[in-house]
């Protein structure tokens, strides 16, 4: 699953540790999601969407049209 988390984070000038603090997860979890090595659960995806005030599908996409 691809995502725009790194771009959205950079736009706000947040470090991975900053984003991890806001989502209440570890920095390793943020890194794994950003690099596509870990797909977040639906509850975490909703938390991310709420944090960035965007719909989930504007942050995460599965590469299919």
């Amino acid at each position: 699953m691809n995502n725009r988390l790194k771009v959205l984070r950079a736009e706000r000038n947040w470090s991975q540790a900053d984003l991890a603090m806001r989502l209440d997860v570890s920095r390793q979890a943020v890194n794994a999601i950003e690099t596509g090595k870990h797909d977040p659960s639906l509850p975490l995806a909703f938390r991310i969407a709420r944090l960035f005030q965007m719909p989930i599908e504007e942050i995460f996409h599965d590469g299919q049209k």
């Binding site: 209440d24 997860v25 570890s26 920095r27």
Partner: peptide
């Protein structure tokens, strides 16, 4: 210490 979230600190 690097800042970590409350859940991470607990774990």
């Amino acid at each position: 210490e690097e800042q970590v979230s409350p859940a991470t600190l607990r774990t």
